[in-house]
Nucleic acid binder design. Structure first.
Lengths: 161, 161
DNA sequence: TTCTTATGGTTGCACCTACAACGATGTGTC
DNA sequence: GACACATCGTTGTAGGTGCAACCATAAGAA
């Protein structure tokens, strides 16, 4: 048992501010999307991820990795999106345990409609409040944190150094 | 209607990484505290905030501002903490609409027991993965974001510049 | 083949959170 | 004092999320 290394003043301030952002930012992202497009941020992110995949189709497990969701969570969200006609599921022919999710035309239209407002919101809340140097710093910091949070690099593999 | 300013490559990478951290970090904080102390991060934060207040007591509204919670959310969390004997509520004598929440002895003991593991986890997940310069950068970045997320500075007033 | 084990995905259950509506008290105006 | 209005906190209700248990299919061993 080693002694606890308590936070010094600078560390404490940095962490308290970070925790505050962690608490506030997700809600700010959700509320704009819910208001303007009737989507949670997670739903938007899943649809956007699909929209950039080949054939706008992915294995459910692959989409879960991209969006960093657990399978149960994604499964239920997909059920909702399917009811809304934005995606469809189909059993995979090669591996009949697996399923492919595809964006429907309506789903594609939804992403196209929602994207500008969402991007504008990300700028307003985050990017436009930082200098270009800070944006780069944030990118490096987040990358460092993902090393611990997502050690296998499964999530957002395309964005890792 | 102005044209959408889409994200350039650096901005997109920074944002995707940040969104990934936003998705993963809260769960990592919760799971250590739930495992070791049977508290969510939010519950821990509320108890810790109380533990640093004069008399270990705060108005419910003041605690909501400190923890950045809505009143309904905090009210229900306090109900749970009260059932566990960690806090108690008492109607405020000066303003009988209001109530004061106080940490009980058991609540204080819980904070004392939980703090070392939590601090260690914050170091493992965040602070120890960054250079001292990056910790300072993160502090400044979070401060800048709170300017938009919490314009009135009600939250974490003590940590703002 | 048959048995065992691993993987893909869904569902039961419990809990947490948001939004809106509500009861109760305080403040200002006439 | 009596009214309108704002504030403090709680609760009804609906929906999201995690964990564990579950079914179905696949892969490997005997």
């Amino acid at each position: 048992m080693s002694e606890t290394r308590w936070l010094d003043e600078d560390e404490q301030r940095a962490w308290l501010r970070t925790a505050a952002v962690l608490e506030l930012l997700p809600g700010a992202l959700d509320s704009q999307l819910l208001r303007d497009s009737d989507l949670t941020h997670f739903e938007y992110f899943a649809l956007a991820s699909l929209s950039e995949a080949p054939e706008r189709t992915l294995r459910i497990t692959a989409l879960a990795a991209l969006t960093n969701a657990t399978l149960p969570r994604l499964s239920r969200v997909l059920t909702g999106l399917e009811k809304s006609g934005l995606v469809k599921r189909a059993t995979c022919s090669e591996d009949r345990r697996a399923k492919n999710v595809s964006l429907t035309e309506a789903g594609w239209a939804k992403v196209v409609q929602a994207a500008p407002g969402h991007v504008e919101n990300v700028r307003r809340l985050v990017l436009d409040r930082l200098t270009p140097e800070q944006v780069q710093q944030l990118s490096d910091i987040a990358e460092a944190l993902l090393g611990e949070l997502d050690p296998e690099g499964k999530v957002f593999a395309s964005t890792r150094s």
